[in-house]
Design a protein around this nucleic acid. Structure first.
Length: 575
RNA sequence: GCGCCCGUAGCUCAGCUGGAUAGAGCAUUCGCCUUCUAAGCGAAUGGCCGCAGGUUCGAAUCCUGCCGGGCGCGCCA
């Protein structure tokens, strides 16, 4: 049990005892009670607001209540001193032995230090990437992919059961365009000069092999055939090949989904029809007129009666069509059924979307609320755009010309770990620059480097000791100094950081924490430059060396744990 | 017009589901290499947390209204 979990339990015990002793009324809401490190560490190691939040409901004043709680806290073996400050904060300083024990705990738990059961096994479905199967992954997809994947790992570590899912949009107009583009490549493979790829079709050379494959398989059979004879076949073949390509791209980032859900299969299985039926029975779908668009009026707009979902019941500004006038499902109509399907296999849903889809969040949340009758927690995380920079200049991309920067290119250039780490150095809903030069820069401005550098330094300590053949005694942790204890205090935050990041679904918090931890470590290391007696390896003092090395190793362990959550490998040397 | 996101140091950003005197990096200034990798470290300077109300013991954080910026709005995906 890590320290913060233990103190939350201590606090609960104390409040129980006070109830029993008649010092507190029974049944107070203890939810607002926290026991956490104060922002300003000069206040102590731990602080609780218990007296402030309980005073009013208990009919007493904060100071008086604080006195009573403080007396009981002071009686704990782990607590060295207690003080009451400000409006009623109770500050505690813990004994050095308590922190030494936490260091042992890190060593005991190793890669599990930080893991928790806070998620209580609740199943979370994280849907991310879900790029259209019409070409290779490009940098526009990258951030959502990394954020989704890191979030999934984080939730697992925090005690959730996680399903990593990819929704294949293989039923809409885009995949028909793909099939037509492939038909061109197919004709080309048979020797025809197709010239320029017409506007509106996918020009990318990655479709050439698909055309070849179809040509080899079917010969000239479909060259002059009407679209109805080949469209389905070409679409299916192309989508399958595109998905293989996308899976390969994702593998470059170390991303592997558990479930690939096909929109076409969903529709073939009649899921949207079932959803519509249920919604109509509950008067949540009706046939009605679509309101005219609020912004610029399209020239060809005309009122039409369509089946509309009552998303306005759930805060959307207008009801949304689930079918088009030609009878086929809208994207939303199918997506609604898809989310219902996901909710069958999970308690909570998370979608990772590009920020350009922000406008459709409300309707899908409305649909999930309706179909699950409000039972499933469902978060849509919007991921902002990444601006690619080279030499300080934005990299120009034109999707139409097909010259977008692919994810594979970027991974090839800077490496998987740099891409992943960098994508997690901003919160998801903030815009981000990705500068090819800066992300590989070996300086402290670059967290990717800075964190790894700390880890490499720690690794080098181990090598030095081994090379020197020094025989170290068991570390005597009573020899830990102030600086060392402060470092342990920061290291001990890791489990809290993990829980907070998981709870708020914000994986970037891990990278910020690691940067802080690395900074504290570099600072400690550097003290040895000014004062040789403060080095980690102190010549002719195996006792001190043993203690400090033990601490350094556990810092390294936490860096590895954090990097693991981000899907990044820790480096043992900086080449 | 409506909706979503965002306004925190000169710049880029954190701020832990409300906590004490708001933090880090860059930039600027000044220090530290007979070294466990200085690819680093330390110090100084720098803030009406967009504005105005509200909620309460307590607000950068929650609510409302403005101001300013970005994105979106169709039977597209």
């Amino acid at each position: 049990m890590t320290l913060f979990v233990r103190f939350a339990a201590h606090m609960a015990d104390i409040l129980d005892a006070m109830e029993e002793a008649g010092e507190l009324p029974a049944g107070l809401n203890r939810k607002p009670v926290t026991v956490e490190p104060p922002r300003d560490l000069s206040h102590g190691d731990l602080a609780t607001n218990a007296a402030m939040v309980l005073a009013k409901p208990a009919g007493t004043n904060p100071r008086a209540l604080a006195e009573k709680i403080a007396a009981r806290l002071e009686a704990l073996d782990e607590v060295a001193s207690v003080s009451i400050a400000g409006p009623g904060f109770i500050n505690m300083t813990l004994t050095p032995e308590t922190w030494a024990e936490e260091l042992r705990e890190i060593e005991r738990l190793g890669s599990d230090y930080g893991r928790s059961d806070a998620g209580k096994g609740v199943t979370v479905n994280v849907e991310y990437v879900s790029a259209n199967p019409t070409g290779p992954m490009h940098m526009g997809h990258c951030r959502g992919a990394v954020v989704g994947d890191a979030l999934a790992t984080l939730l697992e570590y925090a005690g959730h059961k996680v399903i990593r899912e990819y929704y294949i949009n293989d039923a809409g107009g885009q995949v028909d365009v793909l099939a037509r583009s492939v038909h061109l490549r197919y004709r080309e493979a048979l020797g025809e000069d197709i010239g320029e790829i017409p506007e509106g079709l996918y020009p990318g050379a990655y479709l050439v092999p698909v055309g070849h494959k179809l040509a080899t398989h079917y010969g000239s059979k479909f060259v002059d055939a009407p679209e109805s004879e080949w469209l389905v076949l070409f679409r299916k073949t192309a989508v399958a090949d595109m998905m293989d390509m996308i899976r390969d791209d994702l593998a470059l980032l170390g991303i592997h989904h558990d479930v690939f859900a096909s929109e076409a299969e969903l529709q073939a299985a009649g899921k949207p029809d079932a959803a519509e039926k249920w919604l109509r029975e509950h008067d949540l779908v009706y046939d009605g007129m679509l309101e005219a668009p609020k912004g610029e009026m399209p020239e060809d707009w005309e009122p039409v009666e369509l089946p509309l979902f009552r998303s306005t019941n759930y805060g959307d500004d207008q009801d949304r069509p689930i079918k088009k006038s030609n009878g086929s499902w809208t994207y939303f109509g199918a997506d609604m059924a898809y989310h219902y399907q996901k909710a069958q296999a999970a308690d909570q849903l998370i979608d990772i979307w590009g920020a350009d889809h922000a406008g459709t969040v409300k309707r899908i949340q409305a649909a999930v609320a309706a179909l699950t009758e409000g039972k499933a927690r469902f978060d849509v995380k919007l991921v902002q755009m990444v601006r690619l920079l080279r030499d300080g200049e934005p990299v120009k991309m034109s999707k139409r010309a097909g010259n977008f920067v692919t994810l594979a290119d970027v991974v090839r250039e800077v490496g998987k770990d740099v891409v992943r780490f960098t994508m997690l150095t901003r919160k998801a809903d903030a815009q981000m620059d990705f500068d090819f030069a800066k992300v590989v820069e070996a300086s402290k401005d670059n967290p990717v480097f800075y964190v790894n550098y700390a880890h490499a330094r720690i690794s080098s300590l181990g090598r030095r000791v081994a090379e020197a053949g020094i025989d170290l005694p068991e570390p005597d942790l009573s020899r830990l100094g102030t600086e060392e204890l402060n470092l342990i205090k920061l290291a001990a935050q890791f489990p809290r950081i993990v829980d907070g990041a998981a709870h708020n679904r914000e994986p970037h918090r891990i990278s910020f924490y690691l940067n802080d931890l690395a900074s504290a470590f570099h600072s400690w290391w550097n003290m040895g430059n000014d004062d040789p007696s403060k080095r980690i390896i102190v010549v002719n003092d195996v006792e001190t060396t043993s203690v400090r090395l033990s601490l350094a190793r556990q810092i390294g362990q936490i860096i590895r744990n954090g990097l693991m959550l981000m899907g990044v490998e820790a480096l043992s040397e900086m080449q």
